[in-house]
Nucleic acid binder design. Structure first.
Length: 659
RNA sequence: GCCGGUAUAGCUCAGCUGGUAGAGCAACUGAUUUGUAAUCAGUGGGUCGGGGGUUCAAGUCCCUCUGCCGGCACCA
C-alpha cells in the first residue's frame, strides 16, 4: 500500500498509509485526541472523521473546542435528527434539503398537512429521544444508479432530483443516523449523543419554494437554532428579545413617530415627532448636496403613460406601478350623454422612480459639453406597488422618498463622478454614525445591451474610482443592470442585519431612449451618460435603520424631542418658561413639563420616551438661576448655570456638518 | 404573489369545550407641590378587523375579504 504525507498545523509532516481516515490519524497521535476528535480539515476542506485520505495533504484535527467546525457539525446533524424525527412521527413526509444557516439550520419538507406550531414541541421531544439514543452516524459512497434506484423505491423524488444535480465525478454520499438514512455531502459527527440536547430550539415553520422556484409547489420549512451549550442558546434568545425591543415598528409607536394603517398599506403617516427626524435629516442632506455641487429640482408625481412607454418602464416595470385612470370629461360635471360619449380616459402612473422626469429637465433647452457634469438632485417621492409579502414597517414600503440625483456626464467623466460620490456618501454615513459600509460591485449580466468595449471601459471606471478613494469592494459578477454596472452600498445595523441604502448606477440607455443630448466641442450632438445615485436610499428605510441602530436613542441633533424642562414645584413654572424660550431661541427643541406629577414620574416618562436631556427645576434652581441636567440613561445629574446649559445644548443640537 | 400564523379598549394582553366582554398601563376628574425611572382615589371607554353563514344563541365554529407577523419569492 502506498504512503501519503500529512502535514499538521505545527508544520510537522508524518507518513501514513493511503486511505487512512482522520479518526485513525487522531488515534495515532494520542488516545485522548482520538476520543475528542469530531472532524478534520484536509487541505482546507471540512472532512468527516470517516472519510479516507488518499493524497498528501495538510490536515488539522478538530475537537468540540473549535467553534466553527463544531457548530457546523452540531447544526448540520441537528438538521438530520430533525428530519428523522419528522419522518418518524409523520412517515408520509418527503424530505428535501436541510442546510446549516447562520445560527442553526432549516429543513424543507413536502407533506400535505401543514405543520402547526404545536407540532414543533412534539418534534423537539422526538429529537431529544434520538440524541439520548446515541445512535451511530455512518457513511458510505454509493454509485449514482444505486442511489437513484434507492430513492425511487423509497418514494423520495426530491432526493432523486438532488442526485441529478450532483456533478459527474463528485461522490454521492449516504449517511445513516441510526437506521434513518439521508443523502448528504457531510461531514457529520460520530453519534447523535454528541449533540447538545439542551442547546437547540425549533424557531418556526414557514413556506419555501424548492430551489426558490415559484412555479413549483411550496414546501414547508422548519427552522431551528443550535449552539454548543445551553448558555449560548440562552444568550441568543435574549439577543432576539433585545432586538425585538429596538424594532422600529415598536419604537415608532412608543415614541409617537409614525403609524401605518389598512387604508394605505406600505405608506407612512408621519407624526410630528417622526416628521421632525425626517425634516432634520432632509435639511442636512440638502446642505450636503448643495455643497457637493448638486442642483435641487422637483418633478411631477403623476405622469402620463406615454413617458413610461418611452422610458421602457411601461413594458418592464408596469406590475410595480400604481396606474391612475382619469376620465377627463369630468371637467364639466355634466350629465349630457353626448359629452360623455366623447369622454376620453387618460392613463397615468405614479412615478416609481425619478429618472425619466430628470431627463425631461435635462432636455429643456440646449445643453453644451460645458454644462457637464450636470448634477440634478430631487427628494423624489416615489410609489411602487411592492408585493404584499415584501412590506416591512417603514423599511420596505410602497410610498417613499429617495435622496435621488442623476448626473449627466460624458463617458470620460464617469470615474471622477463615481469617486466623488463615494467620498460624498462616506462623509454622510460617517456623520450619521455609520463609518463602516460595504460596497458591492455588480458587473455585466448575460443579457445586456452595449458593446463589450463599452462595458470594459465603464466597469474599469468604477473599479478605478473605488481604488482611487482607497476602498474595498465585493464583486457580484453578472448582477449589473442590463444597461450598465452598478455599485450598491450596504450598512450593517446594530443587530447585524444588512441593508442596502446607497446606489450608483451607470446608464447610457435611458438618455438614448428619451433622446437626451448635448453639444460636443466639435459642434455635434452627443448622448450623455446618466448616473443614477442615492446615498441614504430612501428616507423611510434610513430612518428605520437609525431608529434600530440607536434603539430609539437618536443622536441629540436628530432626536425629535431634545430637552424636556420639568418642574418639581409649580413655583418654578415662570422660570421654566424662560428656560424653554432661551433654548428654543438657541435652536434647541425644548418643551416644558409643568404637570402636577412627581419628578420621578416625569423622569421615567421622558426616559421611556427617549428624550436625551431632562432639566429638573425646583426651588434651588429658581433661586440660583441654574438647571439640573440629567442625560438619558444616566443616573448622575449635573448642575449648570442657565447660560452654560443653553450653550452646551445648543452645540449638541447642531447638525454635524455645521459644527 | 405563495405557505403558515394572527386580528378583543389608545397600548400590552386574558376570555376553557358557543350562553351578548375583563385586567394592568394610558386617558379623564379630584386630592397631593412633590428632588431624578410609575403619589393616591374615583370615572368613562370596546357594533371583539370587514362581510357572509351555521345555531334558539357566535369574541368563541365555518366561509370569504383586508391588514399585520414569520419565512419564501420579489427588490430592473
Amino acid at each position: 500500500m502506498s504512503q501519503i504525507s500529512l502535514t499538521f498545523p505545527d508544520g510537522n509532516a508524518r507518513e501514513f498509509p493511503a486511505g487512512i481516515t482522520p479518526a485513525e490519524v487522531a488515534q495515532a497521535i494520542s488516545t485522548s485526541l482520538g476520543k475528542k476528535a469530531i472532524s478534520a480539515s484536509v487541505d482546507g476542506a471540512h472532512w468527516d472523521l470517516a472519510w479516507p485520505i488518499d493524497t498528501d495533504a495538510a490536515i488539522a484535527i478538530h475537537t468540540m473546542q473549535d467553534d466553527a467546525p463544531a457548530l457546523e457539525l452540531i447544526r448540520h446533524d441537528f438538521a438530520h435528527v430533525m428530519a428523522r424525527a419528522v419522518q418518524e412521527i409523520w412517515p408520509d413526509t418527503k424530505v428535501t434539503i436541510g442546510p446549516v444557516t447562520e445560527k442553526g439550520w432549516f429543513y424543507d419538507f413536502d407533506r400535505a398537512e401543514p405543520f402547526t406550531p404545536e407540532d414543533l414541541g412534539a418534534i423537539e421531544a422526538k429529537m431529544k429521544e434520538i440524541v439520548a439514543a446515541r445512535d451511530p452516524v455512518t457513511t458510505e459512497v454509493w454509485d449514482r444508479d444505486r442511489a437513484i434506484a434507492h430513492y425511487r423505491d423509497t418514494n423520495e423524488p426530491y432526493k432523486v432530483e438532488l442526485i441529478d444535480r450532483i456533478p459527474e465525478g463528485a461522490p454521492i454520499r449516504m449517511y445513516w443516523h441510526g437506521d434513518w438514512q439521508d443523502l448528504c455531502r457531510g461531514p457529520h459527527l460520530q453519534h447523535t449523543g454528541q449533540l447538545p440536547a439542551d442547546a437547540f430550539k425549533l424557531m418556526g415553520v414557514s413556506g419555501a419554494y424548492w430551489f426558490g422556484d415559484t412555479s413549483r409547489p411550496m414546501l414547508q420549512r422548519i427552522q431551528g437554532v443550535a449552539f454548543k451549550n445551553r448558555n449560548d442558546l440562552k444568550a441568543h434568545l435574549t439577543f432576539l428579545e433585545e432586538a425585538a425591543k429596538r424594532d422600529h415598528r415598536r419604537l415608532g409607536r412608543e415614541m409617537d413617530l409614525f403609524h401605518m394603517q389598512e387604508e394605505a398599506p406600505g405608506q407612512v403617516f408621519w407624526h410630528p415627532n417622526g416628521w421632525t427626524i425626517y425634516t432634520t435629516l432632509q435639511d442636512y442632506m440638502r446642505r450636503k448636496q448643495r455643497a457637493g455641487g448638486y442642483q435641487e429640482i422637483n418633478t411631477p408625481q403623476v405622469v402620463d403613460r406615454k413617458l413610461w412607454e418611452a422610458s421602457g418602464h411601461w413594458e418592464k416595470y408596469q406590475h410595480h406601478m400604481f396606474i391612475v385612470e382619469v376620465d377627463e370629461s369630468r371637467d364639466g360635471e355634466t350629465d349630457d350623454a353626448a359629452v360623455k360619449d366623447k369622454a376620453q380616459t387618460r392613463i397615468n402612473a405614479l412615478k416609481p422612480m425619478n429618472c425619466p422626469c430628470h431627463v425631461q429637465v435635462f432636455n429643456q433647452g440646449l445643453k453644451s459639453y460645458r454644462d457637464l457634469p450636470l448634477r440634478l438632485a430631487e427628494f423624489g417621492s416615489c410609489a411602487r406597488f411592492e408585493p404584499s409579502g415584501a412590506l416591512h414597517g417603514i423599511m420596505r414600503v410602497r410610498g417613499f422618498t429617495q435622496d435621488d440625483a442623476h448626473i449627466f456626464c460624458t463617458e470620460d467623466q464617469i470615474q471622477e463622478e463615481c469617486a466623488r460620490f463615494i467620498e460624498f456618501l462616506a462623509g454622510v454615513y460617517r456623520e450619521l454614525g455609520f463609518p463602516d459600509f460595504e460596497i458591492r460591485f455588480a458587473t455585466r449580466p448575460e443579457k445586456r445591451v452595449g458593446s463589450d468595449e463599452s462595458w470594459d471601459h465603464v466597469e474599469g471606471a468604477l473599479e478605478n474610482a473605488i481604488k482611487a478613494v482607497g476602498r474595498d469592494y465585493v464583486l457580484e459578477p453578472g448582477d449589473g443592470a442590463f444597461y450598465g454596472p452598478k455599485l450598491d452600498f450596504y450598512l450593517t445595523d446594530a443587530i447585524g442585519r444588512v441593508w442596502q441604502c446607497g446606489t450608483f448606477q451607470v446608464d447610457p440607455n435611458l438618455p438614448e431612449r428619451l433622446g437626451a443630448s448635448y453639444v460636443a466641442p466639435d459642434g455635434d450632438k452627443k448622448r450623455p451618460f446618466m448616473l443614477h445615485r442615492a446615498a441614504l436610499g430612501s428616507f423611510e428605510r434610513f430612518i428605520g435603520i437609525l431608529i434600530e441602530e440607536h434603539s430609539g436613542k437618536l443622536p441629540f441633533w436628530l432626536a425629535p424631542r431634545q430637552v424636556v424642562v420639568a418642574s418639581i414645584v409649580s413655583e418654578a413654572d415662570d422660570y421654566i418658561h424662560e428656560i424653554v424660550a432661551a433654548l428654543r431661541a438657541a435652536g434647541v427643541r425644548a418643551e416644558a413639563d409643568l404637570r402636577n406629577e412627581k419628578i420621578n414620574y416625569k423622569v421615567r416618562e421622558h426616559s421611556v420616551g427617549k428624550v436625551p436631556a431632562i432639566l429638573a427645576i425646583g426651588h434651588r434652581e429658581v433661586e440660583e438661576r441654574t438647571v439640573t441636567l440629567r442625560r438619558l440613561g444616566e443616573k448622575a445629574t449635573s448642575v449648570l448655570s442657565l447660560d452654560e446649559a443653553v450653550a452646551t445644548l445648543a452645540r449638541e443640537a447642531t447638525p454635524p456638518d455645521l459644527l
